[in-house]
């Protein structure tokens, strides 16, 4: 049980971290929409539209870390031998 919780804690931290890095290591808050720039050839203006896509930000990293810390703490409590 203790090992399983610790393994889960590592996954909880590394999972979002790998996802964050793989999706461009966005330094701000997570995004629910992403800007798509398209050039209007006649006017030369970049049209901005938004597509619905989740991009993890530092809050996703923080959430993963918080879950990992929680699971580690739980594993320490569960694994403690009674005196």
């Amino acid at each position: 049980m203790r090992i399983a919780l610790r393994l889960l804690a590592v996954i909880s931290f590394l999972g979002p971290a790998v996802w964050w890095v793989a999706d461009g290591a966005h330094p701000g808050w997570s995004k629910n929409t992403v800007a798509v720039h398209t050039l209007d050839e006649i006017t030369g203006i970049e049209q901005i539209t938004y597509e619905k896509r989740f991009v993890p930000g530092i809050d996703t990293l923080a959430f993963g870390l918080a879950v990992a810390v929680g699971l580690s703490g739980l594993s320490a409590i569960i694994g403690r031998r009674p005196r």
Binding site: Q47, I48, T49
Partner: peptide, 23 residues
């Protein structure tokens, strides 16, 4: 009618940069 016209805005603070647009 094509919705190309836009205004973008940027607030570049020490801890956070906020960008957005309006069409």
């Amino acid at each position: 009618p094509k919705g190309v016209n836009n205004a973008t805005f940027k607030l570049d603070a020490v801890l956070e940069t906020i960008t957005g647009s309006a069409n």
